[in-house]
């Protein structure tokens, strides 16, 4: 027991202030629900039962059209979110389509986090010409509209999962670069670093001991916001047709498809997938808010005098 308490003590210390963070909690619930949905309803990798329909989750194979499913039927007890023009069940497509945005958002942010931070560290420590060139490059990317840049990049490659991840990753590298570099520059000046230096500690040691922990909180909050943003970018890309190949369920692509039927009043084709994108992005947005509140409690202002 004692051992367990010691091991988990830091975890509790982090979690304790979270109890009062309502936004964070709501966000976590939404995101967890989505991730569970993505795992349970996503592709199984089993060629004979690609979406686990034998477990009745989802009720129909989202990729298949069934002769017995009515064409373009509104939501009903049998088909909760209606059916589409290819005689597919929209509910099955919506719950099975959640994995792609999550995978794309997480992987791309992980890549930009790694690359951005490393470059930021290098740039911050090296200084000089390298720092100048890197900073300028990053500024150039940063000032350009991220949505346009991501779309242009993915249009350059073939459509698909990996190109989407790469395109989004490039867009967010400058964010992490800037955060890390600023942190490094600030800490370099601080006395304890100089003290450590004078004692003969290597830069790597100083990095690991002092700098990384300080940066982590800021980066956590930024990442959550960026994931929320990346989900929207992914959706926009697949809306424009650069996403997963059909007939894979894909929210953005299904909205593009539903657009053709919009004027004929088939509202369920675009409403539900779009709502899911909104919820997923909102979930990460709320987590980001919660973490920011945790890191920087002053953001919640005292009452007016």
């Amino acid at each position: 027991m004692q051992v367990a308490r010691i091991i988990f003590a830091p975890v509790f210390r982090v979690l304790r202030p979270m109890r009062r963070q309502r936004l964070l909690k709501i966000g976590l619930v939404i995101v967890t629900a989505h991730i569970i949905m993505a795992i349970v309803c996503g592709p199984t990798g089993d060629p004979n039962d690609p979406y686990g329909i034998s477990r009745f989750i989802p009720p129909y194979n989202p990729e298949k059209s069934y002769p017995e499913i009515p064409r373009l039927a509104p939501p009903s007890a049998a088909h909760w979110m209606g059916t589409d023009h290819l005689r597919r069940d929209v509910f099955s497509r919506v719950i099975s389509g959640g994995w792609a945005p999550i995978v794309v958002a997480f992987s791309s942010i992980a890549i930009s986090l790694t690359v951005g931070s490393i470059l930021g560290w290098i740039s911050g420590f090296a200084g000089g010409l390298l720092d100048r060139v890197l900073s300028l490059t990053m500024d150039a990317i940063y000032s350009f509209p991220s949505m346009i840049l991501a779309i242009a990049l993915v249009a350059v490659m073939q459509p698909g999962l990996v190109p989407m991840i790469m395109a989004i990753a490039v867009v967010y590298i400058p964010t992490y670069f800037r955060v890390t570099r600023a942190e490094v520059l600030q800490i370099r000046e601080q006395t304890f670093v100089e003290a450590a230096r004078s004692v003969g500690a290597s830069w790597w040691r100083i990095l690991a001991r002092h700098i990384a922990p300080n940066t982590v909180n800021a980066i956590m909050a930024v990442s959550s916001f960026n994931i929320a943003d990346a989900i929207l970018t992914e959706a926009a890309m697949s809306f424009l047709g650069y996403g997963l190949p059909p007939p894979a369920p894909d929210w953005g692509f299904d909205i593009q498809n539903g657009q053709r039927f919009l004027q004929s009043g088939y509202w369920w084709l675009i409403t539900f997938p779009g709502f899911m994108i909104l919820m997923l992005s909102l979930g990460f947005g709320l987590i980001g808010e919660g973490i920011s509140d945790l890191v920087n409690p002053k953001r919640r202002r005292k009452k007016l005098v």
């Binding site: 936004l23 916001f225 929320a228 943003d229 929207l232 959706a235 926009a236 809306f239 953005g252 909205i255 539903g258 657009q259 919009l262 509202w267 675009i270 409403t271 779009g274 994108i277 909104l278 992005s281 909102l282 990460f284 947005g285 709320l286 808010e289």
Partner: peptide, 18 residues
């Protein structure tokens, strides 16, 4: 405000159209 960050803008446009 947080929600307005999270809305897919193309979807919002389509919903408005609808």
């Amino acid at each position: 405000h947080i929600g307005s960050f999270a809305i897919p803008i193309f979807w919002l446009g389509l919903m408005f159209q609808m």
